[in-house]
């Protein structure tokens, strides 16, 4: 194994993911329409109902649209992570996954290449979303557009690794819809994406605890702070630790020594 081999493999996987992405234009628009509907319709409707007081990183009262923008970026990453794992399950069913897994490189590198490729696609989607949000008067400081990129990348890695982990457990494509409902919706709604945690604590202490344990909350908070040129150490540590744990478990899930022995699964 040489660095140049890994680099060429990484480039090849990214290029393939990008070509697939371009071939699936519906996927691109679908990924954008979802957060835009929330921004244009849901947030506009709830603006008058939900007032958001001054909480860090905001220095003044903000409109609800502004509050949920980091959550919607998180939504793009969450759906992209799950979409990526869906495509892993699909690849396994149609057999093209075999081509990747029989490459003479360590399996963890192959999985990381695949994960990074999906995050690069998500970064592109997030950038387009931020441009549209800017035109909708969601205008964070200019530095925020730069500092949010590593936060989006790290959040994407964590959620992509979670998707990868889930795909190692899913035997067939049909089982995937259930997993989506059990993972995406609870993760998204039980987080700080749509409402600040202190508001949730006022209403329901147990829900507050649930939201505090949800790693997606910290992806959203990491993005929220970095979008305003600030830094949340707690969110960064939690996201990094979760990313490492999910990735480690996903690599275990794709270990050839486990694949055949512990379950009947097509690889």
């Amino acid at each position: 194994m040489s660095f140049i081999h890994v680099w060429r493999c990484f480039n090849g996987v990214i290029k393939r993911e990008f070509l697939r992405f371009l071939n699936q234009k519906g996927r691109f628009f679908g990924a954008l329409v979802r957060p835009l509907v929330w921004l244009f319709i849901f947030a506009a409707g709830f603006r008058s109902v939900l007032g958001v007081s001054i909480i860090p990183p905001y220095e003044t009262y903000i409109l609800y649209e502004e509050y949920i923008t980091p959550g919607l970026l998180g939504m793009i990453l969450l759906f992209n992570g799950m979409q990526s794992s869906l495509s892993m399950v699909y690849d396994r069913e149609v057999g093209s996954m075999r081509i990747l897994l029989t490459t003479p490189l360590p399996r963890w590198i192959l999985l990381c290449c695949r994960l990074f490729a999906s995050v690069v696609i998500a970064l592109f989607q997030c950038a387009v979303f931020l441009i549209i949000a800017y035109l909708w008067d969601i205008q964070p400081p200019a530095i925020g557009y730069l500092s949010v990129l590593p936060a989006i990348f790290l959040g994407g890695i964590m959620l992509g690794a979670l998707g990868l982990l889930l795909s190692s457990f899913i035997k067939q494509l049909e089982n995937f819809a259930g997993i989506m409902n059990f993972v995406i919706f609870p993760m998204y709604f039980a987080s700080s994406a749509l409402y600040p945690l202190w508001k949730i604590e006022d209403v329901s202490p147990w829900l507050f605890k649930l939201c505090s344990w949800n790693p997606f909350t910290y992806v959203v908070e990491l993005i929220r702070f970095s979008l305003y040129g600030q830094f949340s150490t707690k969110a960064l540590i939690i996201v990094m630790v979760c990313a490492i744990i999910f990735m480690f478990l996903a690599i275990m899930g794709y270990d050839p020594k486990r694949n055949g022995n512990t379950k009947m699964k097509k690889v």
């Binding site: 060429r8 493999c9 090849g12 290029k15 393939r16 057999g95 093209s96 081509i99």
Partner: peptide
């Protein structure tokens, strides 16, 4: 493999380029 493993949406050339990259060529 017994099952076909080409990427149906990509061209012949793109499929081969992808594999060449995986092999580090």
């Amino acid at each position: 493999f017994q099952q076909q493993t080409l990427e149906p949406g990509l061209s012949v050339l793109q499929n081969l380029q992808y594999y060449a990259a995986l092999q580090g060529l």
